[in-house]
Amino acid sequence: MRRLRSARATSGSYTNCWDTARVGDDVAKSVAELGAGRLDASLANRVIYADALGRGLGVVEAKKSGPAADEVRALAQEVAGILEL
């Protein structure tokens, strides 16, 4: 796993967060090494994903509209197109 970096919040306290730019670069590199195609749709790092999972729900079940629901629908539509469903 990537190391966590410390980010100073406006309150002056420190919190741990992922260095998401580096994680994204690592994922892109791994995809290229596999020779796999990259999807146009992507999922951002959103709290709703963890919240929905913790409640035993999918994102669209937890909140039918919003950016996360739009991302999941776009991803499902793109995968369905690849699988010719």
Rank of each mutant, 00 (worst) to 15 (best):
M1G: 10
M1S: 09
M1C: 06
M1Q: 05
R2N: 06
R2S: 09
R3F: 11
R3K: 14
R3G: 11
L4S: 08
L4I: 10
R5T: 04
S6K: 10
S6R: 12
A7P: 01
R8F: 00
R8Q: 03
R8H: 00
A9Y: 01
A9C: 06
A9T: 08
A9D: 00
T10G: 12
S11E: 09
G12A: 04
G12W: 02
S13I: 15
Y14E: 04
T15A: 12
T15N: 09
N16T: 15
N16F: 15
N16Y: 15
N16K: 15
W18D: 04
W18C: 11
W18A: 15
D19P: 04
G24L: 12
G24C: 09
G24M: 11
G24K: 12
D25Q: 12
D25I: 12
D26R: 12
K29N: 08
K29I: 15
K29G: 08
S30Y: 07
V31S: 02
A32H: 07
L34T: 13
L34W: 09
L34C: 13
G35F: 05
G35C: 07
G35T: 07
A36E: 03
A36Q: 06
G37W: 04
D40T: 13
A41I: 07
A41K: 02
A41V: 07
A41Y: 01
S42F: 10
L43V: 15
N45E: 11
R46A: 02
R46K: 03
V47T: 13
V47S: 11
I48W: 03
I48Q: 04
I48V: 15
Y49L: 08
Y49Q: 03
Y49K: 04
A50N: 08
D51P: 00
D51H: 05
A52T: 09
L53W: 09
G54D: 00
G54Q: 02
G54V: 07
G56E: 03
L57A: 04
G58C: 07
V59F: 03
V59L: 05
V59S: 05
V59D: 01
V60S: 06
V60E: 08
A62D: 11
A62H: 13
K64M: 08
K64T: 10
K64A: 13
S65M: 10
S65H: 09
S65D: 06
G66W: 03
P67N: 00
A68R: 01
A68W: 01
A69P: 02
D70Q: 11
R73C: 06
A74R: 09
A74C: 05
L75M: 12
A76H: 05
Q77E: 06
Q77H: 07
E78T: 04
V79M: 13
V79G: 03
A80C: 11
G81H: 08
I82S: 07
I82H: 12
I82E: 09
L83A: 14
E84W: 07
L85N: 11
L85P: 02
